[in-house]
């Protein structure tokens, strides 16, 4: 077996990611429509921006896919002219890296909801770290900062963790995931003559 991702894996990952890139762009306007409602309600839906990594990994189940997906989604968003500009690219790389690290610690062998939620939390943590550098959120007053953190973490767990997991579960029903997943021993066993 050759190491690394094959052309098929890369193409499928990037196409999934670019589809989410479009969602990310549209999500921006939703984000701004709830922002004026006040106290960090917008942070509840922030988690949507972490979804590409977990979804791509859960579909393809290969190393490196989560990172690639998040970078590709961010660059898709960037090319389509995100008003955040290059920020999305920098955030995307860091968020993807953190999600990838979670999948790596499980040796790319776990595909359940817990690991998706953990990846979502890791991406969220990455975005918070970036926000400390970029948005200086460390200077917010304490109550405001904690509200900000709680809403963002809750939102990420819901969108990038739970939603991503169920999305892939429904996709599995369409049979499309069998096309792109690595073959397991179970598949070989089914080929054996009985």
């Amino acid at each position: 077996m050759k190491k690394g991702l094959k052309l098929t894996d890369i193409l499928v990952t990037i196409v999934i990611a670019v589809a989410f890139g479009i969602v990310y762009i549209l999500w921006g306007s939703i984000y701004y429509s709830v922002k004026p409602l006040g106290l960090h309600l917008d942070q509840l839906i922030y988690g949507m921006w972490f979804i590409a990594g977990p979804v791509a990994f859960l579909i393809l189940r290969k190393p490196g896919v989560a990172l690639l997906a998040e970078i590709a989604a961010a660059s898709g968003e960037f090319f389509l002219g995100s008003p955040w500009g290059l920020t999305v690219l920098l955030y995307g790389v860091v968020q993807g890296l953190f999600a990838e690290l979670v999948f790596m610690t499980f040796k790319y062998k776990k595909f359940n909801m817990q690991v998706a939620v953990l990846a979502a939390i890791a991406s969220c943590l990455a975005s918070v770290i970036m926000d400390f550098a970029y948005g200086e959120i460390g200077a917010l007053s304490t109550w405001n900062l904690s509200l900000f953190m709680i809403t963002r973490f809750v939102g990420s767990i819901f969108f990038a963790g739970v939603t991503a997991y169920y999305l892939v579960k429904v996709l599995e029903a369409t049979g499309v995931t069998n096309l792109v997943r690595p073959v397991s021993n179970k598949d070989y066993a089914e080929l054996d003559q009985k």
Binding site: V12, A19, V176, L179
Partner: peptide, 11 residues
Amino acid sequence: PLLSGSIRRAH
């Protein structure tokens, strides 16, 4: 449908 269609096409 959008996702599964895109995955099939990419493949």
